[in-house]
């Protein structure tokens, strides 16, 4: 629940006034002030969605391989870029999609790319806002999220 700072200050003033008038004890005033401050302080664990929509898709990989040593990948891609790419993908000619479908089937991924519509792609990128993927293995850590 959001409250205006002025409202919280007003509540504090009222509590102090009640204490000064002797209507409440010092303990009660302390409890009330704590309650007001708890409502005022934002939860640090809460997601920062209130600041606006995420702008970037981040991919962080931290792998430790005996053969190639430590590998670190840190990629930040603007979501705008993904959207632009998706819009461009709409113009891919049908014959190219057919060939891509054939290659996907060969690889054991039976997805028909011709069935994917532009608005579905838009929805897909919009849904990325809420994506957080953590893969934690012994030697490898992968983290994908939006910020």
């Amino acid at each position: 629940m959001k409250r205006k700072p002025g409202t919280v200050n007003e509540q504090r003033r009222q509590i102090l006034q009640m204490l000064a008038d002797g209507k409440i004890t010092a303990d009660e005033a302390e409890r009330l002030l704590t309650a007001v401050e708890t409502v005022e302080e934002p939860d640090p664990a809460a997601p920062t969605r209130g600041k606006g929509r995420p702008k970037y898709l981040r991919l962080i990989v931290d792998a430790n391989d005996e053969h190639s040593g430590e590998t670190k990948v840190n990629i930040r891609v603007p979501l705008k870029l993904l959207r632009a790419g998706m819009r461009l993908a709409v113009f891919v000619p049908p014959q190219a999609l057919e060939r891509a479908n054939q290659e996907l089937v060969k690889q054991g991924v039976p997805i028909d790319l011709t069935e994917i519509k532009p608005n579905q792609l838009e929805d897909l990128v919009d849904a990325l806002d809420d994506l957080t993927l953590d893969v934690d293995q012994t030697d490898t850590k992968v983290r994908i999220f939006c910020e």
Partner: peptide, 25 residues
């Protein structure tokens, strides 16, 4: 022209992209 516009949008959307890859040394 729509394809060119799409390429332009792609170009316009590039700022902010960052790629860091580190392997061994």
């Amino acid at each position: 022209f729509r394809t060119l516009a799409g390429v332009g949008r792609l170009f316009w959307a590039l700022p902010g992209a960052r790629f860091d890859i580190e392997q061994g040394r």
